[in-house]
Structures are given as C-alpha cells and as structure tokens.
Design a protein around this nucleic acid. Structure first.
Length: 407
RNA sequence: GGAGAGGUACCCGAGUUGGCCAAAGGGGGCAGACUGUAAAUCUGCUGGCAAUGCCUUCGCUGGUUCGAAUCCAGCCCUCUCCA
C-alpha cells in the first residue's frame, strides 16, 4: 500500500513539514494518532475547513487515527495568525453551540466508530487552568523574543497585538501537549497559516515529554490569482445546506477558473490522480467536462449523491435552455397576489435577486433580468398569473443566476 | 500619563480658503458585449425612495451659519513617538 505521505504530496496538500523523512517513515510504519484543530467561530464549517477534513479522510483511510479538536477554549481567545485585525469576541454560549454544529458535520466525513477517530474539545482542559500554575509549568518553555519573530504575528507587529491574542499560540501548543498525554497524539496537521502555532506545540511536547512530535501543514485553498477560495457574495461557501444550498454550492465549483480545476480536483475529490491530470489537461471548452466532474464530486461528498444529481440536472437543463428543473432556489408567492399582479421590482427584492428597489431598477435598465426567457424591458412590468408556466415563473438575473417563483 | 497624526461610502483613498459634494480616483461587486456557465478585454452601473425631485450619509454629540465632510467645543476610538 502506498504511503499516505506520498499520496498527500502527490495531490498537492503538503506545504511544510517539521521533519519530512521522519514523518514519512513514521506514517509508513505504524498507525499514528494526529490532530487538527477547528475553532468554532461560525455555525458551520466552510470549504476552508473541508480541505483539512479531506486530509483527515486520507489519513484515516491509510489506517491512522484522527483527532478532531474543537477549539471551544481557543475560540474564546481568537487566533491572530495572518489577520490584520482582532476578531470580535464571541460569547461562550455561541461557541458551545457552534461546537455542537461542527461535531455533527464532522461525523458525515469521518468515521468516529470504535476508536477509529476521536473528537475532543479543548474547552475541557483550557477553561479551568490555573494561571500561575500554567505560567510556571508551560510558560517557562516559551521565549517571547522568538515568539514575536514568528511569521503569524508579522501582520500584527504594525497594527498592534493584544496580550489576549498573543497567548493563542501558547494555548494551541498546550493542546498538543495535552493530546499527546491523553491520546498519544504525535502529530499536528493544519493549514499553512498554522505553521507557527504547530511548531510551537511540537517544540513544547519535545521539551516537556522528551519525545518526538511532528507537524505538517497544507496549502490553503487559493485561486490562481492568490485569493482565498470559497468566498461568495454572501460570505463563505458553507457546508451547511441551509447556509449554502447544494445548487449554489455546485455552481461555485462549476464556475471555477480554468487554471484552478486540476488543483481543486486533487485537493477536494478522491478521483485518482491519472484521471485528475487528464481532466486538468483538457483544452478549450472541453475543460467543462472537468468542471462538471469537480462540481458533482464535491457536492456529492458534502451533500450526498441525491443532492449532487439534483444540482447537476438543474444546472444542465437551465444552461442548455431545455426543460426546467425544480432544484434551484425558489420563493413562494401567494396566488392571490399574482392574480392581482405584482410589479417586477417587488419580485426582485422579495426573491433577493436585488438588494433594494433601486438595485432592481438598475438591473432592469441594464437588461439583466429575464422572465421565462424574455428580457424585461420596463421597470413597471407587472408579473401576474399569466406568466405562470406549469405553476412556476423562472427568473434569470444576468447570465447565470436563476430563481423560481412558485405559488 | 505626555507629545503628535488621524477617523470619509463594501475596502483603499482624495476632498478640510464653508455652497459647484451623494462626495474625485482605484479596488471589489453587479449588469451589458464577446465567450466555453472560464480567463482576458471593452462599456455602463455601484446610498435609499412614490425619482427631472426628495430623504439619509463623511467617528459621536452639540454649536456657528441662509448653508458644514469642510469652521468651533466636548467626547469616543485608532496609530506613531516618549514614560
């Protein structure tokens, strides 16, 4: 069987490692317990987290034991890594609630049965720490001069860093030590922005326990232009179907830049690498096949096969201009209102296609709104029962945003 | 605690001898053309509304004035230097 390190390397996950050869040997030799931390700062995981989850899945398939660490404690401090401003503090209840939601989502991807994987919350050991005792046993091992020169604080050296956030690194390092003691966890994985925090942890374990500990980081999901991927107009691309509907999720991947397709296939699907390379090398419009595959596979993993098929069918029919599909976002409007007729601007605002009535007028003026394939010419157009087609009205905004009105 | 600089729309950033400022320019975003549901390029739009006008907006509160992003007072916040 192939060494999982090589698999991760081939697919392009690995960015930095504390001791490349040693880690590779270790992973090839024994079942290793490792952890990745997730701070529950939102009520759903997003694609940025998903890449970490992918790594956990690869590792678990290779016989290693993942620990999903929920940062119920660290989220109360907030990671300053790479951020130019301090985040707003979250309440304890919010964090606990988010942690519960994260937990549910993890279970979809990782098998937590029979000691195959572990989920823990660092609130369990961080919240009750005694300050003086902590400083004396853990604090002594940290050199402030060195910490300040860490890459992750670089942004903050100009803008200012609070003592609260400065402690984040120490807390994360302590997590590693705690997991080493509790579960014999030898390795911490994470996004490349976590490098400083990870080596701090590995160092701490080595100093305190005199045993080897390793760190490994993965490339962040960025576009060919260097921007973070998974950003949409409404914020992040969430894994929660309530926050990002499967159709929208599918469309995001269907629309990625040509140059990013291969990378995404490698990082976000389990498609064999020969196939990934073939799809990635398709030229011209043929590369749409690769994008469809990408969108389908990722959606399937996150939302299940049924939703993936629905999203794909909906997208195909809409863009082929053929028959409609029901699996696109829709808004219900009472029939009595349609009987009387509703002005198009109101419809646009109610469906969320326009952010305000002014925005709606603008869209129409610029020719960006279509009802059942007909371009709207007048801002005063009235939508009524006559526009119904099989109980539905299809609205298109721009080239590819579809929405349905149902009664 | 002391000295200085500054807070402008989604972001950056002009504007501070008071009216010509819903506020230059850039970025981002949206729409149009082109196209492959891609990129690049070009064009338009980008506070709200019952829209040739009206309302709200330039850190907050009050003041001067016919009129304030621009002047005055107090307050809050940020940054730099000093302690």
């Amino acid at each position: 069987m192939k060494n999982v390190y090589d698999i991760l390397m081939e697919r392009g996950y690995i960015e930095q490692a504390t001791a490349e050869e040693e880690i590779r040997d270790l992973l090839g030799r024994e079942s290793v317990t490792f952890y990745i931390g997730f701070d529950p700062t939102a009520d759903s995981l997003h694609v940025g987290h998903f890449i970490q989850v992918m790594v956990m899945m690869h590792m678990q398939q290779a016989g290693h034991r993942p620990i999903a660490l929920l940062g119920g404690g660290t989220a109360m401090v907030g990671d300053p890594s790479g951020k130019s401003d301090m985040r707003k503090m979250l309440t304890q209840e919010r964090i606990a609630n988010n942690a519960r939601l994260f937990q549910k989502q993890f279970s979809r991807f990782i098998d937590f049965g029979e000691n195959k994987a572990i989920m823990v919350n660092n609130a369990d050991w961080l919240l009750d720490l005694n300050y003086i005792e902590f400083l004396r046993t853990i604090g002594v091992h940290f050199n402030v001069n060195r910490m300040l020169s860490a890459e992750c604080f670089k942004n903050r050296m100009e803008k200012g860093l609070t003592f609260l956030e400065f402690n984040y690194m120490i807390m994360q390092a302590y997590d590693f030590l705690e997991l080493f003691r509790l579960h014999n966890c030898k390795m911490q994985l994470g996004g490349n922005d976590q490098w400083s925090n990870i080596i701090a942890g590995a160092d701490l374990v080595r100093k305190v326990e005199a045993k080897p500990a390793y760190g490994l980081t993965f490339s962040l999901l960025t576009t060919s232009e260097g921007k973070k991927m998974g950003k949409t107009e409404s914020g992040a691309l969430w894994l929660d179907a309530e926050k990002t509907p499967p159709y929208e999720f599918y469309q995001y991947w269907r629309n990625v830049d040509d140059r990013d397709v291969e990378k995404c296939l490698a990082l976000l699907t389990f498609i064999p690498m020969e196939e990934v390379r073939r799809l990635g090398s398709l030229e011209g419009s043929a590369i749409n096949e690769a994008k469809e595959t990408l969108a389908y596979e990722v959606t399937k993993m996150v939302h299940g096969e049924e939703e993936a098929i629905k999203a794909q069918t909906a997208a195909r029919s809409l863009f082929a201009g053929a028959e409609e599909s029901d699996d696109i976002p829709f808004t219900q409007i009472e029939k009595t209102r349609l009987d009387e007729g509703v002005d198009i601007i109101s419809i646009l605002v109610e469906t969320g296609l326009a952010s305000s009535r002014s925005d709606g007028r603008r869209l129409i003026r610029q020719g960006g709104i279509y009802i059942n394939a007909d371009r709207i010419e007048s801002e005063d157009q009235i939508i009524s029962t006559e526009d119904l087609d099989d109980g539905k009205i299809l609205i298109r905004k721009g080239k590819k945003v579809y929405h349905q009105i149902r009664i």
